[in-house]
Each structure stands twice: as structure tokens, then as C-alpha cells.
Amino acid sequence: MGFFDRLKEGLQKTRKGITEKIDQVLVSFGKIDDELFEELEEILITSDIGIETSMKIIEDLKKKVKENKLTDPSSIKKLLKEELIQILTENESELNIANSPCVITVIGVNGVGKTTSIGKIANLIKQKNKKVIMAAADTFRAAAIDQLEIWANRVGVDIIKQSEGSDPAAVVFDAVQAAKARKIDVLICDTAGRLHTKKNLMEELKKVSKVIDRELPGAARETLLVLDATTGQNAISQAKTFSEVADITGIVLTKLDGTAKGGIVIAIKSELKIPVKLIGVGEKMEDLQRFDAKEFVEALFE
């Protein structure tokens, strides 16, 4: 199955939801008026894009309609698409693992799919013939280490672990030493899920990061925030607070195979300028895709 097919398959629900409704709206309105804009705004809001971003998008849309003296409601769809692409493509970037060694730290709140995503990421990188090692630094949640270990075995990569309850920074330290000794290309660090409101846990992330900086100075770093596509406006708060303790380089948007629209990505990109790099579209090892803004929006509107 090619990339496009898989992406389409994963996005089917999303696309159906958003475009059906937009088409519905466009058909039911003969001209462009406030009511039409209101309906469009409603569609954006129900995709979890959030009020502020939705309003902003609609305002921009209104301006463009006025500037271009548009009178045909169907031209709105094209404009809206362009608007969304523009938001998402600004400073587009993808997972950068070109330089070895590279350390990927995966962070996020509880239950968003960090460990599963790491399994998938490891698989993705391994297929590029790179040497990968995992660090089981979620030493808090019951059986999190076992879960990651199963993924490591599935993918066929090494894992560095200690016992449950040990210091995550110590696990990462061990992993970095192992990475150096074994000449690893990419080290992926799992971390415990933590609500961004837990101050001391957020501090712990800083410590982990410091260990990496100290032991592997100059290594390429990726810090990925995993977001659940089902999440509403709180995702913005998550992204914001995690940014304060970690230099987030990108987002992994998971669970896009459900009915959730994942619109919050647009709000986050618009407000915080954090790009989405990968999307999770299923439970299988291959169900992780590179996020491409254009394709994402194209697929939404197909």
C-alpha cells in the first residue's frame, strides 16, 4: 500500500466529516452572506480548531471575499483550503534524523500514545537502515517498560531499561552511554505521561534533557510532543506548557483513525507555530505517516 493510500485510508473519516458538511453548506446557500460564514465557522469549531483560530480564519476569508469581490459560494471552499494550507505550511519541517547521533525524546500527557508511537517511529527509522536504540524512561506507569520492550522486540531494536521506579534521567544516561558504545544512529527516549500541570514532573523532563546535552553534546535533537487527535482545546495548553520545559521540534498526532478531526493541529500551528511531523493512523507498526500539510489539507477536501 502506498503512502497516499494509507494516508487516505486513515484520513477517510476526517475527510468525510469535514468536506461533506462544507459541501452541504455550500449547496444550501445561494450567495455569500453572514449566515454562510457563520456556518463555516461552525464547521471549523466542530473540528476542534477552536474558537479563536476559527474566528481568525473566517475573518481572513471574509476579507479575501471582499477583496476579490467574490459572489459565488463555491469559491469559498477553495479559499478556505488555501487558508488552512497556509497556516500549516508555514515553516514546514520533517523529522530530521540525517545526522548521527540523533536523540529523539518523546513527551506528552497520559494516554496519548507515546509508547506506541515510539514503536512505530523506531520501525520507520530502522527501515532506513539506521541503528536504533530505545530508552525506557517511563519508569512510573505500571508495565510501561514491558510495553516498550515488546515493541522493541517487534521492531527488532535494542532497549535500555532499569527497574520500575528508578530515575528516568539515570535510564537516559545509561542509554546514551550504550548509544555511544554501540555506535547508534538514533536514540529514542520514552518518557512517562505527565499532565502538564504537574510542576515537578515537568522539571524532571528538563533533567532528562540536561543529561542528553551533557553526555552527547552536539547531537542532533528532536523533541516530539505526542497529541491525541481526540483532544480538544486543552491540547493548546499542553503544547504551551511542554514548550516551557522542552524545546519541542514537532508534534506527533495520534489516533487519527477515529472520528476525531484533529483540527487542534491547525490551532496549535496558528498560535504556537509548532509543526506536525508525524501522524498515527492505526495500531499496526506501519500506521505512522509523515505529516505533509498540503497532502493533509488536500485529503481533507478531496
Binding site: 499532565l195 504537574k198 481526540t230 476525531a260
Partner: peptide, 30 residues
Amino acid sequence: MTGQDAVNVAESFNEKLGIDGVVLTKLDGD
């Protein structure tokens, strides 16, 4: 923390199974 999709999830589970109650989690966040 679930967003707009909460209605779809709850409706589907309730229609299919007939749930008796709900437990709301992660309320210690913001």
C-alpha cells in the same frame, strides 16, 4: 480533555452496549 468528538464516542458506545454510567478521567489537569 476530549474535544468535539466526545459525542460520537459516547453515542456509539451507548448505542451499541447501553452504558450505565461514565467515569471522567484526568481531571487533575487544567
